[in-house]
Amino acid sequence: MRVQTLMSYWLCLSIAGLIGHVSSWAALADSDIQLGQKIYERSCVTCHGEFGKGDGPAAFYNSAYSAPRPRDFTVGNYKFRSTPSGEAPTDQDIFRVLTNGIPGYMPSFSGLSEEQRWQVTAYLKQFSPDLFRESPTVVDLPDPFIPFSLKSAQQGRSVYLEMECQACHGLDGRGTGATTLMNDLADSRGLQISSTDLTFPQSFKNGGTGQDIIRTVLTGLDGTPMPSYEAQLQGRSEDAWHLVNYVLSLSPTH
């Protein structure tokens, strides 16, 4: 009888403990999102809006009648990805943008702790659950890597012309190609968008390092006219890095 009582106490305790553990574990899983929501509603809401539609009270002023406006997370167009065109970004992609910001338009939120930035990332994904249902595959970077050299940059010029980068970015890379000058380019909101001035890597929205540039070229910027060159540069890893080195060579600091 004594043993039985002891056993039943122990059983109850274990069950209670288990329930407690499981429930706290479950609570932790969605509290990440809830904590992310709290941060979002202080740090992000004025631009990206309460419902993630990129229509916060401050959203209009950034560039008013032209692109870019703050991202509409419900549409599911993520510009800055390491994944193929039309796919969801990885968590790391979202985290990277939160950390680095977007030159000219979104300040860096590295003031949030790393943990907080992951929580916001978890919350952002809730705005387009369909998009994030499947885990995305990352585009492979061309291998082998070719470091910057003037020779490589010179070879990159012919790749630049072959890929017709000049149609938008211009022969001198200043973002004044014929297509840009005709004001035909629009983003997914239908707002007029300009081509990036490639001579000014500090202003590259997806980052200005070689790694950033190759990522942009391969994945494209969804929601903008910048297309993915993944298929065109497939099996041409050297040419891909030559192109990157050519873009780097356009900046006066190089």
């Binding site: 549409v75 065109s85 039309g86 149609a167 997914s188 494209g220 969804d222």
Partner: peptide, 28 residues
């Protein structure tokens, strides 16, 4: 010549790919 095929479902980009002359086809 270069074409830039941009397939969208509503506002969302499904596929936005550059195609240079004699470029590779893209399947999705």
């Amino acid at each position: 010549i270069l074409h830039n095929t941009h397939i969208k479902l509503g506002k969302r980009t499904f596929l936005n790919v550059a195609q240079v002359p004699n470029g590779r086809p893209i399947i999705k």
